[in-house]
Design a binder for these strands. Structure first.
Lengths: 344, 344
DNA sequence: GACAGTTGTGCAACCGCTTGCATTAATTGT
DNA sequence: ACAATTAATGCAAGCGGTTGCACAACTGTC
């Protein structure tokens, strides 16, 4: 059915190995022969079969990208960036969605292992042990998680959470709620750790509510808990939850930001379009996608060093945060916007 | 490096063909042998190499899924549905994003062709001719486009546009703007065709504005044009544009729905979260994803019939539409919600 | 006890392509 | 003029599997 290297060889009167070399090592074949072969290939519509090539070379020119939930608006920009970066290096991205399920994650990595040169594991829910084990079967780069010995790209959410909590305490909030994310999320643990420490330093009380599914429903359904806890400000695990929470607070009769301030994390597109516009910690998602691909492709050349790349986050102040009941600090550190960028 | 069928054969003392059959035709091998082989395979951590298998069987158990823009919230639910449906049949989905670029579309299909059993082309921007040509290289199912001879799943946006325009004319709108979508979009043409006819029947004037990029920016940037045209109601190509438009109208000083009514198409998650909540034409995205996969997998068995599956749409009335200046019709057909579902 | 079926396994070719080595022709040096 | 390079191509093995065919060892039948 499909036109193979043999058809081209027959048409151009050379051996199949010459055709092969025309494509994979052009400098080894005579320019005349080469152009003849190329002409035949063109005319027959020949396209090399990457899978067959991979069988021998071990290079598939494919990259696996695994996310917990494509429908979470956090991921698409990352995927797009990874894809365009991969395309620059003539690689393709295979995206898989795991429905926030650690078991599916493992299964998908294994299924992909032989068809890709490496896998990007974004915000994985698996255990460290399992990730380490899988990394022996296929090159891995994890995003938003730090594991010794595994190359990683992480967004510095700890810093982001600190900025967010400082912003709140500086504006007089003393009773803050933290909506944590899904169980198994490294990011959620980081946020919690940093937020707790920052709240303590700012003499504010922090109530942790969760774990919660990282969706708008997850935020919506804890609105009551937030009010019950008497919090005047909330930091949510992500924007989706923050937006859901605002909706929930609204139906419960609380206004944002007059009664409760809300901060999200991620700065998804949506956050600029809701009313009130969401104050949030912007994470450099696209940069992370590009960096992860670069790291994976570089990994082959130089596998002795496993780098961890930290990307800065920044606080974007919009309309969902307002003053709290306590005294304001004169110099509000929350208003200092730290530019996003790349750090070691 | 990786453990192959040969390693398993050596460990269990049988020929490689027996190992092969243990996995691909278990009934042909003696139960005792089989369990011994399976035990060895298990113990060595053997996983069949799908790419190698594909070389000979021609079946990859992979499906390509091509979308114009993953970041458009319309697509993720479709992708998720396709993926879970595919997984049920032990297939994997490879997602590719084309950045709304017809040339990239072609390139990606060609690159994927040999690694997949078929490709799902969602809202393609290519020409019919090119799609027909590609469909000779790899089994294709198109979503949101009708081409003779190519299996398709389409959402009945013509019906949706009709319901939307009827809703508007019934509530007294006589000057309606239509924000069309990107050039090359079949959906956009369908909407335009249906909206034009329906407006004429309802004695309303329809101003077409566009083509526009199908993003919130696309909507935002034509707010002035809408006001200039004197329209009291707008039907947008999709929700994203509708939401952008509302934002643009708001900053231009026009209120929605008091001054201008806005209807979107798609019913993305976001539309429930903006204020005002968006009136929109709900499209059965998840159903389309599932159906497209089913159609592709069925295609192999029975390729003489190329079906076109039409999925119903429904009008969801929320808060972004209000009465217009003209007389209302007594029985408002827009209030009749047509249940979404599957039709031949 | 010879014959025809079953059943289980091995043999070897092959899928589309790459690549080390051998072969031949053309070019260079002395 | 002849050995030594160099350049271009062919040959064949092999990547990790599948599969038609052959072959043996059992069954059961009359």
């Amino acid at each position: 059915m499909s036109v193979t290297i043999r058809d081209v060889a027959r048409a151009s009167g050379v051996h199949i190995s010459t055709v092969s070399r025309t494509f994979s090592a052009p400098h080894l074949v005579n320019p005349n022969t080469r152009s003849r072969v190329l002409a035949c290939a063109e005319q027959l519509g020949y396209r090399p079969n990457r899978a067959a090539r991979a069988l021998i070379t071990g290079r598939t020119y494919n990259i696996g990208l695994i996310v917990a939930d494509i429908a979470n608006p956090f991921f698409p920009p990352l995927i797009k960036a990874a894809e365009s970066q991969a395309r620059k290096h003539d690689h393709h991205i295979f995206v898989a969605d795991t429905n926030e399920d650690a078991a599916v994650e493992e299964e998908v990595v294994r299924a992909l292992a032989k068809q890709v040169d490496g896998v990007l594991l974004c915000s994985p829910r698996m255990s460290n042990t399992l990730i380490e084990q899988l990394s022996r079967e296929v090159p891995l780069v994890v995003v938003n998680r730090q594991i010794t010995g595994i190359p990683a790209v992480v967004m510095d959410v700890a810093q982001g959470a600190r900025l967010a909590i400082e912003h709140l305490t500086a504006r007089g909030h003393r009773n803050i709620a933290l909506l944590s994310g899904p169980r198994g999320s490294w990011t959620s643990r980081e946020i919690r750790r940093s937020a707790t420490a920052t709240a303590r330093a700012g003499h504010a009380e922090l109530t942790v509510i969760g774990p919660n599914p990282p969706t708008e429903t997850g935020g919506l359904s804890v609105a009551e808990d937030v009010l019950q806890a008497g919090a005047t400000a909330v930091l949510a695990y992500n924007d989706l939850m923050a937006i859901g929470l605002i909706e929930g607070l609204f139906t419960a009769g609380a206004r944002v930001p007059e009664d409760v301030s809300v901060i999200g994390i991620d700065d998804i597109m949506l956050s600029r379009l809701t009313r009130p516009k969401l104050t949030t910690v912007a994470t450099p998602t696209a940069a992370a996608g590009r960096a992860a691909v670069d790291m994976l492709l570089a990994h082959g050349d130089d596998r002795r060093s496993t780098a961890h790349l930290h990307l800065q986050t920044e606080l974007v102040i919009r309309d969902s945060t307002g003053p709290g009941p306590g005294p304001h600090s004169p110099a509000d550190p929350g208003d200092v916007i730290v530019p996003g960028g790349v750090a070691s």
